[in-house]
Design a protein around this nucleic acid. Structure first.
Lengths: 208, 208
DNA sequence: TGACCTTTGGCACTGAGTGCCTTTAGTGTC
DNA sequence: GACACTAAAGGCACTCAGTGCCAAAGGTCA
């Protein structure tokens, strides 16, 4: 019998959660590396069956992704709410910066997560599939603003390019323990615009 | 005994070639789909051992990639040879268009290849790893031209963005049996530049 | 013929992911 | 308390990709 107003869920209760499995798994990844950790390792460490693991995550590759869907909803909402008079690319730039804002207490965890996703080849590959949803959010926005179909060349091009910019900024962020992600994303977007704008406006430091 | 001036190679002769395996595999992919084709299928069809397959390709995912390395060398050469007074992004645009020029007789094969790479999720994912080399060619060029380090934010951002543009153009090309790849690549690059240039210069057709 | 070299491919193994089916831990009802 | 009902858990067996090891095959040259 349920004493709360919430209707009690039928059937056996879930024994663990994505978040808990994520923690257990990350612990192992830290010690043994991603490739060096088997699903069995994770299942044993979490005290569940191997088969059960796959009821929480479709694959080992999805573990580092947490609740990406929810984040996407946030970005979608942000773009929908942004004033229509803002220039298209400015809106996108601000959306991307906002989307990737992380509360300071979560920063360490976010770093760990992204270090895996962008550092481990298998995950790097797998990420392409997850990014598709992210790109579609941008593409839909561009489509709506420009009147192009959302699978048309322009919206897709902008979406793909913006994803690239974001990834490049993330990689820089991971290279430096004290880098500022928001700044990097903003700079990357502006640099690309500048590169298109007037030839080579940027000969800053000696390269190699 | 060798009658030609070419020194005969020592040891057992290779029994097949990447190109031949590629052909055999594509045949099967057409009939059974990529996922529906096992390495065993390919090996049997090619009359070789399963183990031998892996001496020609590091993985099933690499089969559709043909001789990508050689193509990359071509693009590298093109960029190295391009007049230094050309504006950076124009040079890159032309390099990308040139890199993706395919002789008419190879177009059908190239379509098949790209349909796999961009259409099958596993391959889509795997492609990320192959694209890394492509990106580096662009990044190195940008680095040299701008004086930034080649793993710096600007070169990497441009490289990632350009890759995105190219993929978006390819996807459009695959959607239409008679599309012109060079035109699409060129348009995609210019569209992105325009999007950065002046807000929304492009409200062309009704979207949805 | 025999020394030498390289490719081939068989065998056994690991590890991811899946389908099927039983068990377990909950619910509400009589 | 016994019962039907429900959903999660997880065991089992299987497929398939990929790898390490090693012996056999097919070439060269002296």
């Amino acid at each position: 019998m349920s004493t709360t107003g919430i209707p009690a869920q039928l059937g056996r209760r879930r024994i663990t959660s994505r978040a808990e499995l994520e923690h257990v798994a990350f612990e192992l990844f830290d010690r043994q590396g991603f490739e060096g950790t088997t699903i069995d390792d994770i299942a044993v460490a979490a005290g569940i069956g191997r088969r059960t693991f796959f009821r929480y995550f479709p694959s080992k590759n999805d573990v580092p992704w947490g609740n990406f869907e929810d984040e996407l909803d946030r970005m979608r909402g942000w773009l929908a709410a942004c004033p229509p008079q803002w220039p298209l690319m400015d809106a996108i730039r601000l959306a991307i910066v906002d989307f990737n804002k992380v509360p300071p207490e979560d920063e360490r965890w976010h770093r760990r997560r992204m270090q895996l996703i962008l550092g481990v080849p298998v995950l790097q590959a797998h990420s392409t599939l997850r990014y598709a949803e992210w790109r579609q959010v941008i593409a839909d926005f561009v489509a709506e603003r420009t009147g192009h179909p959302c699978d048309g060349l322009l919206p897709q091009t902008v979406a793909y390019a913006m994803l690239g910019v974001a990834i490049a900024a993330y990689e820089q962020w991971l290279q430096d323990d004290h880098g500022n992600l928001s700044e990097l994303l903003d700079t990357a977007m502006r640099d690309l615009a500048a590169a298109f704008g007037d030839g080579l406006p940027l000969r800053v430091e000696p390269g190699r």
